[in-house]
């Protein structure tokens, strides 16, 4: 884009972010403070992810941007356009074709592979912030690997509710050293982080932190021997493609309790339907009418 550097950020800023990313990879799960810049999107809308993506993106990359698993949500569209404008980079909606995937709140259903990079947008990098709001204190706890506060919280959940009451942004231990916020992905996605072949980078712009999980690194969701981690999904199959293994969005279809469950990962759902898979409430791709019919 005229008047701006490749991928918007100036080279000095990119160097600063790149140095932070390398430290983050060298210390898996540890939050690296960085001089987060003010960029032309609001804080809380992916400014950390955008800065990380801008620092790594090159002309050879193919970028996929998703929000809630979907490529066509407005914020995903907006961020994809930002990079198409400022970096003239090729974009794709296919998980398998992407070299860099920027995401908010989901990990794609299609398993990521060696050489891919997934960049998470992180609103709150500190996993203990609800228990201890002072970052001076939580920093000390990370230094001492003192995570008793979090274990007590989970134990109290079990005592009171019979199970752990966290359903997203479920805390993980990385490389058996750092407690880490996986960003607000559903707990359903947590197991995908463990020994993932792709490099995982996390950017929190407003909170000015970058952290990372290298490929093939141990990522364990916190749990107890007698209360093992239990990732939940709605107990249904996708109404459009019939998938029984994907994370589902619940769509209200009327005010009398009618609802439709569909894959939150639009690429996964579309790929399955293109392969001829049809859910109970869908119609095969290519049928007349265009819109996807759903009976209730």
């Amino acid at each position: 884009m005229k008047g701006y550097n490749f991928a918007y950020l100036d080279e000095q800023t990119k160097r600063m972010i790149r140095r932070a990313i390398l430290k983050a990879v060298a210390i898996p799960g540890h939050q690296i403070p960085f001089g987060s810049r003010e960029i032309p999107l609001p804080y809380g809308w992916g400014t950390g992810g955008i800065q990380v993506t801008a620092a790594i993106l090159g002309a050879d990359d193919r970028l996929k941007v998703i929000d809630q698993g979907a490529d066509d949500t407005t914020n995903a569209v907006s961020i994809r356009r930002f990079f198409a404008r400022t970096a003239d980079v090729a974009t794709t909606t296919k998980t398998a074709d992407a070299t860099v995937i920027q995401t908010r709140h989901r990990i794609p259903e299609t398993a990521l592979r060696d050489g891919q990079i997934i960049v998470y947008q992180v609103p709150q990098p500190e996993p203990m912030y609800r228990l201890e709001p002072s970052r001076v204190e939580t920093r000390r706890m990370h230094a001492l690997a003192d995570y008793g506060l979090m274990h007590v919280k989970l134990y109290e959940d079990i005592a009171r509710l019979g199970h752990i009451g966290i359903s997203y942004d479920y805390p993980v231990m990385v490389n058996a050293r750092y407690l880490m916020a996986p960003s607000p992905i559903p707990a359903f996605d947590n197991p995908k982080m463990h020994m993932m072949p792709a490099l995982q980078l996390f950017g929190a712009g407003r909170e000015k932190r970058i952290y990372a999980v290298p490929p093939y690194t141990e990522v364990r969701s916190l749990d107890f021997v007698d209360h093992p981690f239990h990732p939940a999904r709605a107990p249904h199959a996708c109404g459009l493609c019939g998938a029984g293994d994907s994370y589902l969005d619940e769509v209200l279809t009327d005010d009398r309790g009618g609802r439709l469950f569909v894959c939150s990962d639009t690429d996964y759902c579309e790929t399955r339907r293109a392969d001829g898979q049809v859910g109970a409430e869908g119609v095969p791709v290519g049928m007349p009418g265009g819109a996807v019919e759903a009976t209730q």
């Binding site: 490749f6 990119k14 790149r18 990879v25 790594i56 993106l57 002309a59 050489g115 490099l199 490929p215």
Partner: peptide, 17 residues
């Protein structure tokens, strides 16, 4: 801009693997 990005990705890939 281009050359630094390529070299960085080499270092990043080296650090990741």
């Amino acid at each position: 801009a281009r050359d630094a990005q390529r070299a960085f990705r080499a270092v990043l890939a080296a650090m990741a693997e």
